[in-house]
Design a protein around this nucleic acid. Structure first.
Lengths: 329, 329
DNA sequence: ATGCAGTGTGCAAACGGTTACACAAACCTG
DNA sequence: CAGGTTTGTGTAACCGTTTGCACACTGCAT
């Protein structure tokens, strides 16, 4: 019970070879007689031997661990991408270590902890840590840091998102429906991603000589969407709310309907961002500025693979968003 | 650029001590002069030294890694608990490695991979792997396996969930409203958790001399809830559907409303399970058999801590569910 | 002065693998 | 059949920590 895992030396004794040979039996292309390998593999199976990944990592300088820095896993707006990425990593025999920033106050300490595990790659989805901090903490290892924030650092590859065209389309439609008084409900104060998203819409409005009539800040959650929408609608006369993500948009829609008695899209237009599966559920049917999550994760994986292949400097990929039309705008 | 991380030996040279002393400077209670420690810590900060967790783990036989075996992170019905647990682990300086089973075909291989990382604990939330397999794979390490499945193994601690009383209440209410023809929409075929949940309701019905009129199986997702509900309602005349989780219940509710034109709770009663935050959103307002997620994760953490403290054998904790009343039943 | 507990430090052996190097045996080629 | 290549295996060093043991030093009571 609680039996210690058998080591390569012990297995070597059992199989009548040296521990070096055991190691070779487990490395696909190394000089070893196929008869010996088969015998070793058989004995290994019998005794339940598996090479110790910790020891191997120490030697290799390669842990096959990937740090995923995210805000939260509970929020559907992020979870969908995370799920996709975790799947792709697993296919490649890479294991994700997830760092949840949202509810952890000392995020730097958290990243430092992960960095001591010599992770091979770092993917930052969270907008609650600054890229500069991430680079500072992980720079001694060899991270790819997938960043939305354009950081001028030769270590950081990034994926840029362009939603300006889609924002334009969306604003066009809403203005065409006779709406003029827009509000923006941010996901968070002072995050790069949020500022970028906001800018797409502000620019689209400016083209039509319009400007935001009101603004508020939430926390990417339903409750904040609901609450801030109520306050917003009491404070200012607006007939369209652009939200920082889909979940907040659902909250805002519910608030408008329940508290103010306003229905979409006639009384008020509500727009989300992300384009998560839930946005398309029949009960939501959100109009949203949506990102192709599969393409996004493809890009992340591509960056990771470039990095693995030790290709030259950082690499940037830009993806464009599209509008998903629902019945809320 | 890609500078190698500094090692304790190098730091030792810089600080004019031996690497053993470096190590001691970083272990809270070890015999070391406080002046030396302060000096070392200062030099360490200057050069950005942090002890290598991989090497430490190898030596310690303690990795501070925890394997979390889950179905998916993208499904809100699980993500909420996972988020809570990840947070609690992080507080304790433990890092989670998430294994997503839903989209990985060879789950055993996945668990074997994680087991080579000498994880200190294993928490199995997924009902897509058998507990026996998990035990077989992780038994050489010292795992706590949080299991719903009553497995008679001295390594496996478990948390049992009892929802029978709440199911009884819910059935009582629905029957009181004049409904008699129940269907059960399972989350998955042949999983222990699903069978258990189903049994609570079947038993509650039996007490009233009622039985299920129809059954179907989905995959815990919205689309499957929607699709199976449509088929179910075309196939059988039922006026209440109990669903395997909340997301499927939302799907079923949408299907009933959109495809069949039946509204809750008058035409049909719909019940979910889990009691996730989303169930309480204004647009959903689901009646659901709900589990206190905080209490649940408290229990998981308690088991992990017992295990860390090397307390005697396995331990079992039972939690009871409560009904959350919404407008769908 | 002598002995002895207590304190701070270094040495060296783990921890469990991988891999450069060395070497023996087997296989060619002319 | 000599010489060269290929193949398979073992030896030992190394990856970066931790920790038991030894040792030197201080302080204090005898």
């Amino acid at each position: 019970m609680n039996k210690r895992r058998i080591t390569s030396k012990e297995l070597a004794k059992l199989a009548g070879v040296s521990s070096a040979t055991i190691s070779r039996a487990f490395s696909p292309d190394s000089r070893i007689g196929s008869a010996t390998r088969d015998r070793i593999l058989a004995v290994a199976r019998e005794y339940g031997y598996q090479p110790n990944a910790i020891a191997r990592s120490l030697n290799n300088q390669r842990s096959r661990l990937v740090a995923l820095v995210v805000n939260a896993i509970g929020n559907p707006c992020e979870a969908e991408e995370q799920q996709l990425l975790v799947h792709r990593l697993q296919e490649r025999q890479l294991l994700p270590i997830i760092l949840c920033c949202a509810d952890h106050d000392d995020r730097l300490q958290l990243m430092r902890l992960a960095s001591t595990y010599q992770v091979d790659h770092v993917v930052v989805f969270s907008d609650m840590v600054s890229m500069q901090d991430a680079v500072d903490i992980f720079h001694t290892t060899k991270p790819i840091i997938v960043s939305f924030e354009p950081l001028d650092n030769e270590k950081v590859s990034s994926i840029r998102i362009d939603g300006s065209a889609a924002a334009d389309e969306i604003i066009d439609k809403i203005v065409g429906d006779g709406k003029k008084r827009f509000a923006y409900l941010s996901g968070t104060k002072s995050s790069w991603i949020d500022k970028l998203r906001r800018k797409w819409f502000v620019d689209a409005l400016a083209k039509r000589d319009l400007a935001l009539q009101a603004e508020a800040f939430g926390d990417y959650g339903y409750d904040s969407g609901f609450k801030e929408a109520v306050l917003l609608l009491h404070r200012a006369k607006v007939d369209a709310i652009i939200c920082g993500n889909d979940v907040m948009a659902i909250g805002a829609r519910d608030a408008a309907r329940r508290v103010l008695g306003k229905n979409t899209p006639d009384d008020i237009a509500i727009v989300g961002q992300d384009g998560i599966a839930m946005a398309a559920w029949d009960c939501n049917d959100l109009t949203t500025l949506s990102l192709d999550h599969v393409a996004f994760i493809d890009a992340v994986v591509e960056l990771i693979e470039r990095h693995d292949a030790e290709l030259e400097g950082p690499h940037n990929i830009t993806l464009t968003c599209t509008a998903r039309w629902g019945s809320t705008a």
